[in-house]
Simulated assay, not measured.
Amino acid sequence: MFYHLGRYILLLRLAFRRPEKFSVYWGEVMHEMVSVGIGSLGIISIISVFIGAATTIQVAFQLSSPLVPRSIAGSIARDSNILEFSPTISSLVLAGRVGSSIASQIGTMRVTEQIDALEIMGVNAPGYLIAPKIIANVLMVPVLVILAIGLALLGGYIACLSSGDVSPADYLSGVHDGFMPITVQVALVKATVFGFLIASICAYQGFYTSGGALEVGQSATSGVVYSCVMILFADLMITRIML
């Protein structure tokens, strides 16, 4: 474990060395931001709406007592989506979509000796291949999480309109009442850390791939699994520290 941790830290140090040409790296960062942001927009939107709707319905079912204000369903659904569901579930989905792509792309370049060719030409391969992906994920995952939070709340409102378990007015009242800005800060910190973990862990798995097509698939799988585990661990640590 310590061997892999050492290689992981060394790879990150190499990735963030001073670039040879800023314009080339900037173009790669823009390309990766479009790939992560626009490419993930559809799946994040669909998941967020359905999670927000399901959360609101389940909270309304559990708080069916006449002694409990109906607006509390909006408050609980809001905080649950902001603090946990939107950042964590969105990041787990991104680990599967973006992380596997990063690992397989870099792994394919490794087994086809394209990375060796870059190093022979004097290019800092970790910096050219990995740093733009990490930067793009750190910047775009928080944007996607903010979008996911908004769509989750919209999904809850749609559920109230369609199910009638909670009136839309009570739901909106609960969403507004008692809102604490620190919950959004926690969500953004989680999203930033999760984005870094997804890109760096999957890039590490791909960069040290050896063999052929089978090993590339194994590296992509390992990258997704390790990313998901570290996302859940980081989620626990950030929640414990900030709340």
Rank of each mutant, 00 (worst) to 15 (best):
F2T: 15
L5E: 06
G6F: 14
L10H: 14
A15T: 04
P19N: 00
F22S: 08
S23L: 10
Y25R: 13
G39A: 03
L41Q: 13
S45R: 14
I47S: 14
S48G: 10
I51N: 11
A53Y: 07
A60Q: 08
L63R: 12
S64P: 15
S65N: 11
R70P: 13
I72E: 10
S80M: 14
N81V: 02
I82W: 02
L83R: 13
F85A: 07
T88P: 05
V93I: 14
A95M: 04
S101V: 01
I106W: 01
A117Y: 11
I120S: 08
M121G: 08
G127H: 04
Y128R: 10
L129H: 00
I130A: 00
A131R: 02
P132I: 03
N137F: 06
V145K: 03
V145N: 03
V145C: 07
V145L: 04
I146K: 06
I149Y: 01
I149A: 02
L153G: 05
G155V: 11
L161G: 10
S162V: 07
S162G: 08
D165V: 13
D165H: 15
D177C: 09
G178V: 05
G178A: 04
T183Y: 11
A191H: 04
V193I: 05
F196K: 05
A199C: 12
S200L: 07
A203K: 05
Q205A: 13
F207K: 07
G211I: 09
L214K: 15
E215H: 10
V216Y: 02
A220I: 01
T221C: 03
V225Q: 07
C228S: 11
L232Y: 08
A234Q: 13
I238G: 04
